[in-house]
Amino acid sequence: MSELLHHSITAPDEAIASSSAAAATTGAGYTVNETEAVRPPRGAPAASPALKLEAVTLAFGGVTAIAEVDLVVPSGEIRAIIGPNGAGKSSLINIISGIYRPDRGRVWLGARSFKRVPTQQLAQLGVARTFQNLALFKGLSVFDNIVIARAPARRAGFVEQLIGLARARREQADAHARTAAIIEFLHLGAHREKLVNTLSYGLQKRVELARALVARPQLLLLDEPMAGMTAGEKQEMAGYIRAVRDEFGTTVVLIEHDIGVVMGLSDKITVLDYGRKIADGTPAEIRVNPVVIDAYLGVAHDDEVFNDNI
């Protein structure tokens, strides 16, 4: 909780406007086992990073996608991972979320380390992610797309839900309150009952962010959250990402192509090239790093031609 208070000092206007509603549900809904999963044990130094990769290596049929990557992201930081296409950025996110199993190396989420992160338990571990291509449930409304991310916290079985027993109703009310708060936080109120695939691309991206947030993750992984957006939409999304960190103290790891947005948004930037980490530093440091300029900034324009994912 102290983290939350600390970070709310820098909250932008729009976040402050809705902070009271969001904070109310934060206080009410936090359960013990949720937090224990990722927080370091009592007495351990508070500096335990939100995410740590140790010499992670991954190859697809002989082609190395990720080579010996180390990464430390302290709690509450916004970290961008950039690099030319095929540099292994998406692979890295997929390793952190357990979709790929690294050939070597370990992934630390808070105080727990994994050879392969169990994807099905990701939400309980306090990790949420979005996808490069939209991964919404097109048969559900905006509201239902978001509220469903509370699924792991629900204990009532389908019969209880069907009959509407007390526990099912209580969980439903809690999930709805949290969803309403997130919808307000991200200004999706006007769209809450619409089917998601009737929304604009930028709005759908925002719904996906909302779905990731409703589980109150400690670590948020964003795979190209601003791809395909207009300049205005990008600024808006950057504002929301910052507000999320400031409001909830969430650690954010994001992949993004637009260097301008990344420079303004992130606390630190990690640069990948051919699966290797070639630099790590503040935006100011990265901007002047000769290795980065050689490897990445110099070929930034070719980048748009090959628009495939690894």
């Binding site: 994807t119 469903i148 699924a151």
Partner: peptide, 10 residues
Amino acid sequence: DHELAAKVIG
């Protein structure tokens, strides 16, 4: 609609 996304959100 999206089995992987469903799995990721728990």
